[in-house]
Amino acid sequence: MAIKVSVKTVRGPLAAKVKEVSGQDPNVCFQCGLCAGSCPMTGEMEIFTRKVMHLLQLGLADVVIAQKMAYLCASCHTCQVRCPRGIDIPAVVEALRLLTLRHGENYLAPESIPAERVREMPQAAMVAGLRKFTA
């Protein structure tokens, strides 16, 4: 992945927004990778949480939100309880999702879920999923 880093990207508004919405500072991350190693959902992620933190340090939130990664987080908080720097990583990932969701773009349209799945699904999964994936 080719990236372009400059003072402009590092001080850009998107990464600042992620910081504000998540209440977390990705700059304290020292890149140990324990988070990515703990993540149960890496199977289909193009980039893992460690790299996400690094990209955010460089101000490249737009690079991160172009990936599917933020929508693969299950908010299981395994990374969060293990992070030696005390970063609430799921909160950072939630903020990344909200960058697009808050503009009214659904990641998952409720009506696209097959009716027979909705019928058998525990309500908790429907409620949680629509909270994470709909605008």
Binding site: P110, E111, I113, A115, E116, V118, R119, E120, Q123, M126, V127, G129, L130, R131, T134
Partner: peptide
């Protein structure tokens, strides 16, 4: 209830 939810999945929002 599940049948109503399947018709109106936005219920869970």
């Amino acid at each position: 209830g599940a049948a109503v939810g399947a018709l109106y999945p936005e219920l869970f929002r």
